[in-house]
């Protein structure tokens, strides 16, 4: 098996492990006094972590010259989407008991719920078009479409910041990682523009 395959397999296994652990804790009644809340929080945390990890792949690859990191971007992104889907399902089914009038009220009246839902809606087309076939079919438009990931990650972080009552340390940790990852891209693009400008002068 090639190195790429091994890395892919490793990423999938590591990425699925937290989900498996949650399942084991659920079956063993080890989720604490409020299991639904614990499932909601943990699935949301992992969605955010994997999404940010996916966004960290390109900067690491570019800065360290590690080309073999590239496929991880898709793997981590899809895993992040998986946890986001689980997070949404736990909220709608276990937390709200599929009481749609309450879900709709949440969506329309609670900005943090709307931000979280928007993040998921933005991720959905990215997950669908993550296959080789779609990359080929969309060509250049694929890259543009997948820039939606920045909006999705921002909405996810905002969702977390807005729901906290007082202790902002954890959501702000995620916010600073996201800011660093976005800043890296902005600076790089600016530098590229500048050097192209200088070269053509």
């Amino acid at each position: 098996m090639s190195r790429t395959r091994w890395i892919g397999l490793g990423a999938w296994s590591l990425g699925l492990a937290p989900g498996l652990l949650l399942l084991i804790r659920l079956l063993g009644d080890q989720l604490g006094a409020n299991p639904v809340e614990e499932l909601t929080h943990e699935s949301g945390r992992w969605a955010l972590r994997l999404l940010l990890a996916s966004l960290a792949v390109t900067p690491l690859r570019q800065q360290l010259g590690l080309a073999w990191l590239a496929p991880l971007r898709r793997t981590l992104g899809l895993l992040g989407f998986g946890y986001a889907a689980l997070h949404l399902a736990v909220y709608a089914v276990l937390d709200q008991g599929l009481a749609w009038e309450f879900v709709l009220e949440d969506l329309s009246e609670r900005p943090y719920i709307a931000a979280g839902f928007m993040s998921f809606v933005l991720l959905l087309p990215l997950a669908i078009t993550s296959t080789r076939g779609w990359i080929r079919r969309l060509g250049r438009r694929w890259t543009r479409l997948h820039q939606l990931v920045y909006a999705a990650a921002t909405a996810a972080v905002v969702h977390f910041v807005w729901l906290v009552k007082a202790d902002l340390r954890e959501p702000l940790a995620y916010a600073s990682v996201l800011t660093a990852l976005l800043a890296f891209r902005v600076l790089r693009a600016a530098r590229k523009k500048l050097s192209v400008g200088t070269a053509s002068a």
């Binding site: 940010l52 990890a53 960290a56 690491l60 800065q63 990682v177």
Partner: peptide, 25 residues
């Protein structure tokens, strides 16, 4: 500074991954 950058990134990831996990019981 490549090692330093990598170390910082890994520490950050590890903190995010395990910092929130607590033993409920």
């Amino acid at each position: 500074r490549r090692r330093e950058i990598l170390a910082t990134a890994l520490t950050g990831v590890a903190t995010l991954a395990f910092g929130g996990a607590r033993d409920a019981r």
